[in-house]
């Protein structure tokens, strides 16, 4: 029962591991280039899920926006009332990086399709082999 509690207390982390491995597997094992990019996306979002999980606080912590902020600047703010803002900041940056990588990967994909007229890695490799054979 204790082990069960232990596992449940971290279920978010176990889930991110599962997601990350789904993405990782797609990135290295799938032959289709689009599937690789889908895997890349899942892989990166899993890391973002991990970071956001580190930020959360149990016990009624609210979103990191100071409530009734206008005028109460001198009040002491209880840290336990707000979730940790730093991982959110980092992950905003990471999402941007993610979408940039995604755009670059898609651009390369279109270049490859124009050149080989297929998106399967093994077909591209066999085309390259026949080119070499000539």
């Amino acid at each position: 029962m204790e082990a069960m509690d232990y596992i449940i207390s971290k279920y978010n982390y176990w889930m991110y591991i599962i997601l990350m491995m789904i993405g990782f597997y797609a990135m290295i094992a799938k032959k289709n280039l689009v599937k690789k990019i889908v895997g890349m996306n899942i892989f990166q979002t899993a890391i973002i899920l991990f970071f956001i999980s580190t930020a959360s606080k149990k016990g009624g912590a609210s979103i990191p926006i100071i409530q009734n902020g206008h005028g109460s600047a001198t009040d002491i703010i209880n840290t336990a009332h707000y979730v940790n803002p730093l991982p959110h900041v980092l992950m905003l940056t990471a999402i941007v990086v993610m979408v940039s990588t995604f755009g670059v990967a898609i651009a390369l994909l279109l270049m490859l399709y124009k050149k080989y007229n297929t998106l399967e890695e093994d077909e591209i490799i066999s085309i390259l082999k026949t080119e070499n054979g000539k």
Binding site: F24, M27, I28, L33, K36, M40, F43, Q44, I47, F50, F51, T54, A94, T101, V104, A105, L108, L109, M111, L112, K115, I124, L128
Partner: peptide, 24 residues
């Protein structure tokens, strides 16, 4: 070059993400 670069994107992203995970 595009195929080499695509593979580099995949590998480089895995590398960068592992680094980010380490930082996390």
């Amino acid at each position: 070059a595009p195929l080499a670069s695509f593979n580099y994107v995949i590998m480089g992203t895995i590398g960068a993400c592992f680094y980010l995970l380490g930082v996390g």
